[in-house]
Every structure is written in structure tokens, then in C-alpha cells.
């Protein structure tokens, strides 16, 4: 049994069926990419894992425990952190307050994240400590949402399209951050449309389209698989 498993997950929005028997398997310490076009079901997969859109059938198993069906805050407290794609930092809270409200699981992990460690990883956030979330730039907001989720001391980090809408320089910086986070022992599941960004940071990838998994394999294989790239990814 892997660290985080999705077994034949089916998820609906109302009566519309979105995910069809999605199965994923992530080992501890891996960085795994979930690739697919807009509307392929990447965000819904994440929302199913974290419990914001619980699956109607199938199960999500984390460290041998079934977490599907639990409420989102419980799943977070089990050690799964979710960074949504639209960078929802709290606009009325300062950067520091954004971090403070997320402090969680300090006793469960050996070396919990502190505000100081976060600032060491994202120095820019320290400079903007007193600013409101709404006053940050897009890249800063992305850093803040990742940093905020790290404050919950997750063992698995779900990153939803972190590179979207960011300048190339910032994207390169982001790749470094993800590798650093991985070094801290955090397992990362990365949803992306940007194949080259994924290739830089992850070892393995899944390709998802129309709500079901179409391909899985090492990133190096995916990079040279023209058929899959052509069919399911906008390259």
C-alpha cells in the first residue's frame, strides 16, 4: 500500500459526473505530477482528496487510513495540505496573520514549520509581513498560499497549478521552492498544464483527461511520448 492512494474515485457536481474511476498511488517523498488540460478534472481530483467535493464512490486512503468521507478540516489535520489554483489568500488579513491562522499539527511532526523557517524559504514574504493579502502581487500571493498551507505541517502537499499566470522568472523560482519543500520531507502532488515545469520538479506523472486517467509513467518517458502529449496535453 502506498502513502496516498485513490481507488476508483467517482465524483459529481450535483448530478454531473466529473471523475470516472480515478486511481492514483503516491509514495512517500515523491513529487508526482497530474497533467491535463483545462477542465480535465485535476482540481476536482484535489477537491476529492481534501474533502471539499467528497467522492460518491471509491476511496481515498492515506497512510493506510480511509480519509474519504471525512470533513475537509479533519483531512487537513491528518496531514494533507491543499493549495488551490486561484491563490486564495485571505485578503483582509496581513501576511503574518495569514500564516498564523493556519498553524496546525505542531506536535505531530518532528520539526514543525515556523514563521521564521517560512521566511527563510520565502524571504519576500518577510518584507511584506505587514501588508494585507489583497495588496500582494500574483507571485507573492502564490508564495503566501503555499507558505500558509505549509504552516499546517502537511505530509502531502496538493499544489494546484502553481505556475499558472506567473512570469517565467517567478516560475523558475517556484520550481526551486518545490524542490526545497521536497527536501524537507514533504510529498508533493502537483497539478499542472505546464509539462516542462513538471519535468523539472517531478519524477512521475499521471495524465488525466475528461475525468479519467489516461497515462501513467516516469516523467522521462512522458516527455518523449508524442502520442500522449499530442492527444491529451496542449503542447
Amino acid at each position: 500500500m502506498a502513502f496516498l492512494d485513490l481507488n476508483s474515485v467517482n465524483t459529481y457536481y450535483g448530478r454531473s459526473h466529473i471523475l470516472f474511476d480515478v486511481s492514483l498511488s503516491i509514495e512517500k517523498g515523491e513529487v508526482v505530477s497530474l497533467l491535463g488540460r483545462n477542465g480535465a478534472g485535476k482540481s476536482t481530483t484535489f477537491r476529492s482528496i481534501i474533502g471539499l467535493n467528497p467522492p460518491q464512490s471509491g476511496e481515498v486512503v492515506f497512510k493506510g487510513e480511509r480519509i474519504s468521507g471525512m470533513r475537509a478540516f479533519r483531512i487537513c489535520r491528518k496531514g494533507i495540505g491543499f493549495v488551490p489554483e486561484d491563490r486564495r489568500c485571505f485578503p483582509d488579513l496581513t501576511v503574518l496573520e495569514n500564516l498564523e491562522v493556519a498553524i496546525r499539527r505542531e506536535k505531530e511532526v518532528a520539526s514543525p514549520w515556523t514563521v521564521e523557517r517560512i521566511y527563510a524559504l520565502f524571504p519576500r514574504l518577510q518584507e511584506r509581513e505587514k501588508n494585507l493579502g489583497s495588496q500582494l502581487s500574483g507571485g507573492e500571493q502564490q508564495m503566501l498560499t503555499i507558505a500558509r498551507t505549509l504552516m499546517t505541517n502537511p505530509e502531502v502537499l496538493l499544489l494546484d497549478e502553481p505556475s499558472e499566470g506567473l512570469a517565467p522568472l517567478v516560475v523558475a523560482l517556484l520550481a526551486e521552492m518545490i524542490l526545497k519543500i521536497r527536501k524537507e520531507g514533504v510529498t508533493v502532488l502537483l497539478a499542472e498544464q505546464n509539462l516542462h515545469f513538471c519535468a523539472k520538479v517531478s519524477d512521475r506523472g499521471y495524465v488525466i483527461d475528461k475525468g479519467s486517467v489516461k497515462y501513467e509513467g516516469p516523467m522521462s518517458d512522458l516527455l518523449i511520448n508524442e502520442e500522449v502529449k499530442e492527444k491529451y496535453l496542449a503542447v
Binding site: L52, C76, R88, F90, L93, V101, R105, R148
Partner: peptide
């Protein structure tokens, strides 16, 4: 300001 996000943050 964001109920769902708060939920996902535990």
C-alpha cells in the same frame, strides 16, 4: 472572507 479555504486549512 473565505469559508472553504479556512475549512481546507484545518
Amino acid at each position: 472572507s473565505d469559508r472553504e479555504m479556512a475549512d481546507a486549512l484545518g
